[in-house]
């Protein structure tokens, strides 16, 4: 089946033949929720929750986390609905349910909208209005501001759009504490500054793919050399920022060690990306930075989770 497009007039005949009969499997609908992104959202939101040691019923915390996960999945679904045309062009995304023809665009839109509205309402009922408003803002920011506007119009797309991916710790803290504190704002800042070097490392490797799809990623607009400089600049900010939880007292000794080693690793790889600019080696170091950046962020948050959730916290000062 060919790509089922968003416009009524261009709907392929084959889709019409099966109109009213969904072709999607349960796994296709689950894939629309971007499970890997959802895991990252749940993970970072959970850390946002535990660092404040909230006096909240675990059932309420679990239900809040579940709704944050559903909200994140819903925004991923709306993103796939909107981006189905460019997903069909890029090798990395052409197997997704909509461009592959397994799910019709309207099904995805209905699915995403239902989950968006439902997750926000239930989060508001389970926790509080602040958390629900922040979740709604996150969904709108990702689906509308990032997907519909920034992604196809500016090379700063993932810089500004990165705010959507950085918000879950703030939503998590608001859900269990009822306020937004310094802890979650620092976690937001870490993810926000981490996003450009992470995605631009991937964009360096997949620049041809992005160019074919017409997405103005930084390597395609400003060139690979400028992108490498910016990756290094963001990483120079990220490495010390990763230690901010220690300075603010909610990152313990283990976190300080992990953040220092991880930050140095990020700096070393970003410098390698900056230095090695030609051939296979350049692609290899960019891939290494991309992979290591995921490990780095995971370790930072996992250490905070272990320190606060499992009682491993040992203060660095005093």
């Amino acid at each position: 089946m060919t790509l089922a497009t968003n416009t009524l007039t261009e709907t392929p005949t084959e889709t019409l033949a099966t109109a009213g009969v969904s072709q999607g499997d349960v796994s296709d609908f689950f894939a629309l929720l971007k499970p890997r992104v959802m895991f990252l959202v749940v993970f970072t939101a959970l850390v946002g929750m535990v660092v404040v040691h909230p006096d909240v019923n675990p059932v309420v915390a679990f239900a809040s986390l579940l709704m944050i996960a559903v909200g994140a999945g819903a925004s991923g679904c709306l993103n796939m609905w909107w981006d189905a045309d460019i997903d069909a062009i890029m090798t990395r995304t052409r197997g997704r349910p909509i461009p592959a023809g397994r799910i019709a665009p309207n099904e995805a839109l209905a699915f995403g909208m239902t989950l968006s509205v439902g997750s926000v309402i239930v989060l508001g009922l389970v926790s509080n209005v602040l958390a629900a408003s922040l979740l709604a803002f996150t969904i709108v920011f990702y689906a509308v501001i990032y997907s519909m506007w920034l992604k196809r119009s500016t090379p700063q797309n993932i810089v500004i759009g990165g705010a959507a991916g950085a918000l879950p710790p703030i939503v998590g803290q608001a859900a269990v504490a009822g306020y937004v504190g310094w802890e979650s704002i620092i976690l937001f800042a870490i993810i926000f500054i981490w996003t450009p070097p992470h995605f631009w490392a991937l964009a360096l490797v997949k620049s041809a793919d992005y160019a074919r799809a017409g997405i103005p990623m930084m390597p395609n607009v400003a060139g690979p050399d400028s992108t490498r400089r910016q990756i290094l600049a963001y990483t120079v900010v990220l490495a010390p920022l990763g230690l901010a939880p220690v300075a603010f007292g909610f990152g313990g000794l283990a976190y300080a060690i992990i953040a220092t080693i991880g930050g140095l690793g990020m700096l070393a790889l970003a410098f390698q990306v900056f230095r090695v600019r030609k051939g296979e080696a350049a692609m290899r170091v960019a891939q290494q930075l991309f992979a290591f950046s995921i490990l780095y962020l995971f370790l930072l948050f996992a250490t905070l989770l272990a320190e606060h959730g499992l009682g491993f916290f040992r203060p660095v000062f005093g």
Partner: peptide, 30 residues
């Protein structure tokens, strides 16, 4: 197609059941 529809219906039923259970447990917890 029938098999896929059955699986979708089952997933929907399970999701709705889980939602009912969630509302009940949260109500008791709150």
């Amino acid at each position: 197609e029938q098999k896929r529809r059955r699986k979708r219906s089952l997933a929907l039923a399970l999701s709705l059941g889980a939602l009912v259970l969630l509302f009940y447990v949260v109500t008791i917890a709150k």
